[in-house]
Structure formats: structure tokens, C-alpha cells
């Protein structure tokens, strides 16, 4: 199994995540697409960890998971507050930050 297969798969997943961030307006779905991009990077790190026979990359994946969990907890709290104020999670409403 050449490592190229994992590279193409990760590129495809990352691009799908980018497209999702660009075309959706629901803030929660945008967050899920960001999770998709983080997971594509994690998959590539694990593939290269096996390729180079080095455990450091798997520790990096561990830290990326920590950052993703912290990001989701704070981000969802912000989305809940936005919903409480505007009764919507549409990101186009948030183009002005005042009011």
C-alpha cells in the first residue's frame, strides 16, 4: 500500500471541509466542517507516523484532539449565546458585530 493513497484521501476530506465552510450558512454545520478538516490532518499525521516509524506524530494527533475539544466547547457556547440574542444561527446575520 503506497502512502500516496492516504495523501489523496486526506486531501479530498480537507477539500470537502473547505467547500462546506464556504457554501453553508448554518454556523453549526460550519463547525462540523472544521472538525472534518482537523480529522483529515490527523489521518495524514498518523499515516506518516507509520511511514517514518516515529511515535511523535501520534502525540501531535493527541494534542490536536485536545485543541479541537477546547475549540468546540467555547465555539458552541458562543453559538448558543448568538442564538439567544438573534433567534438564528445564520452567519449572514453576524456580518455586523454591534447590536
Amino acid at each position: 500500500m503506497p502512502i500516496q493513497n492516504y495523501i489523496w484521501l486526506s486531501i479530498a476530506l480537507f477539500s470537502i471541509g473547505v467547500i462546506g465552510v464556504l457554501i453553508r450558512r448554518n454556523a453549526i454545520v460550519i463547525f462540523m466542517c472544521i472538525e472534518l478538516m482537523l480529522n483529515a490532518v490527523n489521518l495524514l499525521l498518523v499515516a506518516f507516523s507509520k511511514y517514518h516509524h516515529d511515535a511523535s506524530a501520534q502525540i501531535f494527533v493527541f494534542f490536536i484532539m485536545v485543541v479541537a475539544a477546547a475549540e468546540v466547547s467555547v465555539g458552541l457556547a458562543i453559538i448558543v449565546m448568538v442564538y439567544r440574542h438573534t433567534k438564528s444561527v445564520d452567519v449572514n446575520i453576524l456580518n455586523r458585530l454591534k447590536n
Partner: peptide, 9 residues
């Protein structure tokens, strides 16, 4: 995984 990722979007 590719099909379900497209489905998410």
C-alpha cells in the same frame, strides 16, 4: 468516508 463527508456538506 468520502461519501459521508459529502453528505455532511
Amino acid at each position: 468516508s468520502i461519501l459521508s463527508a459529502i453528505g455532511v456538506v
